[in-house]
């Protein structure tokens, strides 16, 4: 033993370059799919390649993707938040009420963020303090948050927002680049750095892989998860600002069913629904593919009901595919 200790074997950092692994990754498959969808859309409609039309297409994913980034971290950590669309409804209702009371744009934004934060804190409290399963908690708050919006609004709508508010939803920063698109890119970069380049991101991944070992390694598991619920709530608040500004009105049915679209986007992006792995570049690609497909279907005049069928099938497919694929591979090996 003492000889080996005196002359230890050197263990390499990595065996081969990361090029091969990158080529075989889910993300590179998504790039191929994204290109295919882009080409298909171009062939399907002569209007698709128009810069303003393309710019319009981004609305199909920018707001959802902002939530998707936070949702990705939450799912990687082994939790989920299905109440995000209802948080939008509640935040939007609160903004509408504030606007009706005569408050200005900065107040409206703060109101939406605070509502998102409080809703996220509520989910986080129930999950991390009371130890309840997040899927059950957030199905409950999914009903609860939108229920409050329904009580406040009934069959009414808030439609009078201050002039200039619509810039958050439809404003151009330069040429055809919208404010929302800029926000999407900024958040993609921030969340990419947080997940892949910080201690916090590493801890999120570890918790998703093995929460017990994470706790035994000194990670404050409950605190990390609570922060993720807060982030998801706040991102839903931000999405509420953009969406409300773009629509110019608040009905209690705003963003109905978005939670599934967000989860689908995230899982399509390669995030393991069981937690433990996933990347932000993957989520960006997943978002763009979903956005382009739904926009393409829109160009072809496919009705909204069919699109929700499409979302459902896609969600099942992207959850099932990796699992089936793994099973087939193990069977081939044995």
């Amino acid at each position: 033993m003492s000889e080996t200790a005196a002359n230890p074997r050197r263990i390499p950092d990595r065996l081969s370059g990361r090029g091969m692994a990158a080529l075989q990754s889910w993300e590179s498959l998504l790039v191929v799919v994204a290109i295919a969808v882009f080409v298909a859309n171009t062939l399907a409609s002569p209007y698709f390649l128009d810069p303003y039309s393309l710019s319009d297409a981004t609305y199909n994913f920018t707001e959802r993707a902002m939530i998707g980034f936070a949702m990705a971290l939450l799912i990687i950590s082994g939790e989920i938040d299905l109440s995000v669309a209802s948080i939008i409804a509640l935040a939007s209702t609160a903004m509408g009420a504030a606007a009706a009371a005569g408050f200005g744009i900065p107040v409206l934004v703060v109101v939406a963020l605070v509502v998102g934060l409080v809703c996220g804190a509520f989910n986080g409290f129930l999950v991390t303090r009371l130890g309840l399963p997040s899927i059950v908690v957030t199905i409950g708050t999914l009903s609860l948050f939108r229920g409050i919006a329904f009580i406040v609004l009934g069959d009414q709508a808030y439609t009078s927002y201050p002039s200039g508010f619509s810039w958050f939803g439809m404003g151009y920063v330069f040429w055809v680049v919208t404010f929302e698109l800029v926000l999407f890119v900024v958040f993609a970069v921030i969340y990419g750095i947080v997940l892949h380049k910080t201690n916090f991101g590493r801890q999120v991944t570890v918790i998703g892989n093995n929460p017990t070992a994470a706790l035994f390694s000194g990670i404050r598991v409950a605190r990390v998860k609570f922060i993720l619920f807060l982030l998801t709530g706040v991102m839903s608040g931000i999405a509420a600002v953009c969406l409300t500004a773009r629509l110019g009105s608040t009905r209690p049915s705003i963003a109905l069913g978005w939670e599934l679209e967000v989860v689908t986007m995230v899982v399509l992006g390669g995030v393991n629904i069981l937690g433990g792995s996933g990347t932000i570049p993957g989520v960006v690609l997943g978002a763009m593919i979903m956005g382009m497909v739904t926009f393409g279907l829109g160009l072809l005049n496919v009705p909204g009901t069919v699109m929700s069928i499409f979302t459902g099938i896609l969600l099942i497919a992207v959850i099932a595919l990796p699992i089936v694929w793994r099973r087939v591979r193990t069977r081939m090996r044995t």
Partner: peptide, 21 residues
């Protein structure tokens, strides 16, 4: 397996986990 190692993660990430700071 349950409390010590995080199986799917690489060796170096396991070793540095409590020393990340």
């Amino acid at each position: 397996g349950r409390q010590g190692a995080v199986g799917p993660l690489p060796i170096f990430q396991n070793i540095t986990l409590p020393s990340l700071t």
